[in-house]
């Protein structure tokens, strides 16, 4: 039974919650606003909130200064590429473990998870040297390989927890109705698996997009995604707040939107199903 909530109490909590929410969100909002300011307005004291001269010049400046678009494309290729490659490997594996569990399935799953616990810095040196010798340093394909492998355990785990929730009875029912194995997979299992695969895809693109250890250490100029592009603003020349804001806004906007859509799956994916 729902309790009757007093309106005054609800209004009080509305004020507090919005205050706290806006405070946490403020740095993002401020970055967004600053990206439309002139460099002088960006450091004005007292700060200008909305009453400044709005301009788009920073966005064009960022593109001209360091070819934003090519870094953006690197991010897209690396995050989407590594996620798709991961799914191709993970879907059959998770499928088999969920529907044909063996005695050692649990051990295999736990072992896969344990590879994720390996601190990246522990294998930085050999990977750097292997990449150097193979000519993979500062290439997109090299980063796709690394990000596929580091996120593979998460992809398999997420898919496994989704697949395991597909009831086995529905397969038996389909079989009773005379469905062939092909029809079973195509018309019964696939439609039920698609939402899980989609959530996994979304979360993994977010993780790969924001990955900032390997992308910073294995790229220089050619394959640098947005994480590395933004890092180049850490040693600035002159006034640069507005340009930094414009670059930052463009770097986080697409993923922020995807993230908001995937917030429910986030908990499941990042806790390996331990909290749902």
């Amino acid at each position: 039974m729902a309790r009757q909530v007093k309106t005054s109490r609800k209004i009080a909590f509305t004020v507090i919650a919005w205050g706290v929410g806006l405070a946490i969100f403020f740095p993002i909002l401020w970055t967004f606003l600053t990206s439309f300011k002139t460099e002088a307005d960006a450091i004005a004291d007292p700060p200008l909130f909305l009453n400044f001269h709005w301009t788009l010049e920073n966005y064009t400046a960022v593109q001209e200064r360091s070819d934003y678009f090519s870094h953006f494309m690197n991010s897209v290729i690396i995050s989407v590429g590594s996620t798709l490659a991961g799914l191709v490997i993970a879907v059959p594996a998770a499928w088999a473990m969920a529907f044909v569990p063996g005695k050692r399935t649990k051990d295999v799953l736990m072992w896969m998870l344990s590879t994720k616990m390996l601190p990246p810095v522990g294998v930085l040196v050999p990977l750097y040297l292997l990449f150097r010798d193979a000519g993979l340093l500062d290439t997109r394909i090299g980063l796709v390989i690394v990000l596929t492998l580091i996120n593979l355990p998460i992809i398999i785990w997420m898919l496994y927890t989704y697949f395991r929730e597909i009831p086995g009875e529905i397969l038996e029912a389909a079989r009773m109705d005379g469905a062939s194995l092909k029809a079973e997979i195509l018309y019964v299992l696939t439609p039920m698996a698609v939402p899980g695969i989609a959530s996994t895809l979304l979360l993994n693109i977010i993780l790969a997009w924001n990955e900032a250890f390997w992308t910073l250490n294995l790229t220089a100029a050619n394959a640098a995604p947005l994480t590395a592009f933004i890092a180049s603003y850490s040693s600035p020349e002159g006034l640069f707040y507005a340009k930094l804001s414009a670059a930052s806004t463009m770097a986080i906007a697409p993923i922020l939107i995807m993230g908001w859509f995937s917030q429910k799956q986030l908990v499941r994916g990042l806790t390996f199903g331990a909290v749902k």
């Binding site: 509305t14 919005w18 970055t31 900032a212 590395a228 933004i230 804001s245 986080i252 993230g259 986030l266």
Partner: peptide, 29 residues
Amino acid sequence: FFGQGVVRILVIAPFFVMPTVSSLVWKNM
């Protein structure tokens, strides 16, 4: 409270900001 969904989205947002962006924004601005 009113607008639960929106406040939830505001609170979650920092998690999706890439580390290099959040560090530089905090450091400079």
